[in-house]
């Protein structure tokens, strides 16, 4: 049986490049106006997975949890070289914190069953928590190696990886299966033109139904036919809901989340109280004099 690895990725709002259009008149960020992107470190994780595919012949499965349009990041992964894609989508997953998210992802991994490795980016730029990787490893009862920069060796039952630690690096050896969280350590390959031509046709079941005017399988038998065709050409993106992965409904989404958001305050950029200093000799002299006077300097 072919060796498999799973890369978990996330579609995130682009919080790093906030343009003027995404700002409200009050100086806060309008989150809905931010473009959705492939979480940057998840691209590094995918690249590492694809390198392992090149080096050791792994089959790369990419999976994400999100709304139906998160299929977009899965296609982006297929364009780069992933072999198979899974979209976890269900209204019940909504509002999940990191514990409920890692539980749902663990159910997905258990449904896939055979895997040597799980890769994820260290953290996502919308929350920056870096919690889902270690929590997922715990849920699967497998070891975790965080902040991985390089896979040095991969044998049948163990892996040797280099990872960053405070003030340096470490080489760890772990048994397989294992979960790695990956930092910005490689140059993700671009989308391949040929693969784009092929995989832009890849669809989830929802997308197929939507394509046919939101038809239902029961009254449109052609859907079954088309599904079979897409599967045959490897253009089928699995769409799994909570029932399919055998998730306990009490442990997913808002219900499965021990943390609650009490309050959200937008950070307001306020341009008050700034003393404008002229970039002239006298302007700067006066400033330095003031700082010496109040003992900030000297």
């Amino acid at each position: 049986m072919k060796r498999q690895l799973i890369v978990f990725v996330k579609q995130v709002p682009d919080t790093k490049n906030i343009s003027g259009e995404a700002m409200t008149p009050e100086g806060t960020v309008n989150r809905a106006a931010l473009p959705a992107i492939f979480n940057p470190e998840d691209l590094n994780a995918l690249e590492l997975g694809l390198e392992l595919k090149d080096r050791f012949g792994y089959s790369v499965i990419v999976a994400t949890m999100g709304p139906p349009n998160a299929a977009e990041v899965l296609r982006a992964a297929l364009y780069r070289g992933a072999d198979e894609a899974i979209l976890l989508t269900d209204k019940g997953f909504a509002g999940a914190d990191t514990l409920a998210t890692s539980y749902a992802l663990s159910c997905c991994a258990k449904t896939v069953k055979n895997y040597d490795l799980i890769l994820c980016g260290r953290q996502a730029i919308d929350g920056d928590t870096a919690q889902v990787g270690p929590q997922l490893a715990e849920k699967l009862e497998i070891p975790q190696v965080c902040y991985v920069e390089e896979v040095i060796e991969l044998e049948k039952k163990k892996i040797k990886a280099k990872r960053s630690i405070e003030g340096g690096f470490e080489v760890l050896e772990s048994q397989l299966p294992a979960l790695l969280t990956v930092v910005e350590c490689n140059e993700p390959r671009p989308k391949a033109a040929k693969r784009i031509m092929k995989y832009k046709k890849a669809k989830t079941a929802s997308e197929l139904k939507k394509f046919h005017g939101n038809a239902d399988y029961t009254d449109a038998p052609m859907l079954t036919e088309e599904e079979a065709k897409l599967k045959e050409k490897n253009l089928w993106i699995h769409e799994w809901n909570a029932a399919k992965i055998g998730a306990d409904l009490q442990r997913i989404g808002m219900k499965g989340s021990p943390t609650k958001v009490k309050k959200i305050q937008s950070v307001v950029l306020e341009a008050t109280e700034v003393v404008n200093v002229e970039p002239t000799g006298s302007g700067i002299n006066k400033l330095i004099h003031e700082l010496i006077e109040d003992h900030t300097l000297g």
Partner: peptide, 30 residues
């Protein structure tokens, strides 16, 4: 780096809520 890989592993076993990278902590009713 250590704390951020250790705390989630523990929280997952304990089924405890975990909030990352806090910059302030207060006590209040909810």
């Amino acid at each position: 780096l250590k704390g951020r890989e250790l705390a989630p592993r523990i929280a997952s076993t304990m089924l405890a809520g975990l909030t990352a990278d806090c910059t302030d902590l207060q006590i209040d009713n909810f």
